[in-house]
Design a protein around this nucleic acid. Structure first.
Length: 273
DNA sequence: GCCAACGTTGGC
DNA sequence: GCCAACGTTGGC
């Protein structure tokens, strides 16, 4: 099931996200070229078999498209440690950006743990659902460029928070690991899938998934309310993307933010596996 | 179910 | 390229 309908901030070059706009242009333009966004333009598109039924769980095996990750590894990963004063000049230039891109990123992904139907399918997906999986889970259903670009920036081995949204107790409930980098989200091509997108063509996929694996569940979740407390001016999470762009379903977490949150977790019962 | 925030559409 | 209308997200 879709992890979450991605959201806002279509920074993508093409910004044609017809899916939910009722104001759609007369038709879903069939022209493939028109839908391409810069980053996936080369699309390569390997497989184009569209599986009709079963909305998910196919572990797509195609090789990742070669596209440049648009999303700049910006989040100022403030290197609290690597304060190297020795060779500052040398690194400044390339390292300014390089340091960040070579550093591991962290992420936060939202899913809805309570039942809700989209295109006839229940999209509910909780941390427990993930924990019960025996195979890598494709994080599908993302239909917003900003979120998709974040997916495409994820590297194998990186970690992400699992966030419960649109529910009674919104908040971070656990962690997962990126076990397979991005590949086309074939669910977009299935008319029966919750987040079918007629504008995405199998031969030129517009959306992406990454595959994730359960890592841990927190003994006690960190609620949105608390997150906001930690996000007040001067507080550790004051720049957290989740709080700045609340509608973004896949966001970046800086190493400092990650460490801070994990320290909070460890102060209250830690994690279970 | 309400509604604030914010993104998109599309006429001009 | 502006901007009013409108749609979606997601907390409450």
């Amino acid at each position: 099931m879709p992890k979450r309908k991605a959201s806002q901030l279509e920074t993508g070059p093409d910004s044609t996200n017809l899916r939910r706009s009722t104001r759609r242009r007369s038709q879903l333009v069939p022209s493939p070229a028109a839908e391409v966004d810069a980053s996936s333009a080369t699309s390569t598109t390997k497989r184009m078999e569209k599986k009709e039924k079963e909305p998910k769980l196919q572990k797509v095996v195609e090789k990742p498209q070669k596209e440049t990750n648009k999303a700049p590894p910006k989040s100022q990963a403030k290197p609290t440690k690597p304060a190297k004063t020795s060779k500052p000049a040398l690194e400044t230039g390339k390292n300014a950006t390089k340091a960040e891109s070579s550093e591991k990123s962290y992420w936060l992904m939202k899913a809805e743990p309570e039942s809700r139907f989209e295109n006839g399918t229940d999209i509910k997906f909780s941390i427990d659902d993930l924990a019960s999986r025996t195979e890598p889970e494709p994080w599908d259903g993302i239909r917003a460029y900003a979120a998709r670009n974040n997916l495409r920036s994820m590297k194998k081995g990186e970690l992400a928070f699992f966030y419960h949204s649109n529910c009674k107790e919104p908040g971070i409930v656990g962690t997962m690991e990126i076990v397979e980098e991005h590949s086309p989200d074939v669910s977009a091509h299935d008319p029966k899938a919750p987040y079918y997108d007629a504008s995405s063509k199998p031969e030129d996929p517009k959306w992406s998934v990454v595959h994730v694996k359960f890592r841990s569940k927190f003994a006690q979740p960190i609620g949105l309310k608390e997150l906001r407390e930690f996000g007040k001016p001067g507080e550790p999470l004051e720049n957290m993307q989740l709080l700045k762009q609340s509608r973004l379903s896949v966001s970046r977490v800086s190493p400092a933010e990650w460490e801070y949150l994990m320290s909070v977790v460890n102060q209250r019962g830690g994690e279970t596996q």
